[in-house]
Amino acid sequence: MTATESQAEVRPAETPDDAPARVIPAALPLQPEDPPRVGEFWLRGRLGANAAGYLYTASDETGRDAVVAMMTEGSADDAAARERFVNAVDDLPTEAVLAHNDSDDDDLALWAAIGPIRSDDGTSAASDERLIAERRGEEVLSAVLMDRVPQLGLLRGPDFRHYWENRRRPGLFRIWPLPWPAVLRPASRLALVLALLMMAVIMALAVFLAWLLFRHAQPLEPEPVIPTPTGTVTVTITPTTPPPGTGSGSPTTGTTPSLTPSPLPTSGIPTDVPSSPGSPGSPGDKF
Rank of each mutant, 00 (worst) to 15 (best):
T4C: 09
S6V: 04
E9N: 06
V10M: 12
R11K: 13
P12E: 08
P12L: 04
A13W: 06
T15R: 14
A21D: 08
A21W: 03
I24H: 14
P25R: 01
A26Y: 08
A26N: 07
A26P: 08
P29C: 03
P32A: 03
P32Y: 06
D34R: 02
D34E: 06
P35T: 04
V38M: 00
G39D: 01
W42Q: 09
L43R: 01
R44H: 10
N50S: 04
R64L: 12
R64S: 08
A66M: 07
D77N: 14
D78A: 05
E83L: 14
V86R: 10
V89L: 01
D90V: 00
D90C: 05
D91W: 09
L92I: 09
T94A: 03
E95M: 08
V97K: 11
V97M: 07
L98Y: 05
D102I: 02
D107E: 15
L108H: 09
L108Y: 07
A109E: 00
L110G: 06
I114Q: 09
I117G: 05
D121T: 06
T123G: 00
A125P: 00
S127R: 10
I132T: 06
R136V: 00
S142Q: 11
D147Q: 08
V149T: 13
V149C: 01
Q151E: 15
L152G: 06
L154W: 11
F160K: 08
R161T: 02
Y163R: 14
N166G: 01
R167S: 04
R167V: 06
R167N: 00
R168F: 07
F173Y: 15
I175V: 14
L178D: 15
P179I: 03
R185L: 12
R185N: 09
P186D: 02
S188D: 15
L197K: 05
L197V: 02
M199F: 15
V201I: 07
V207F: 09
L209G: 10
F214K: 03
P219I: 03
P219H: 05
V225A: 04
I226H: 14
T230V: 12
T230H: 11
T236L: 07
T236E: 01
T240V: 07
G249T: 05
S262A: 15
S262P: 13
L264M: 10
P265A: 13
S267C: 03
G268A: 04
I269C: 01
I269Q: 13
V273G: 01
P274L: 08
S275E: 13
S275F: 01
P277A: 15
S279A: 13
S279W: 10
S279E: 15
P280I: 07
S282H: 00
D285W: 01
F287H: 05
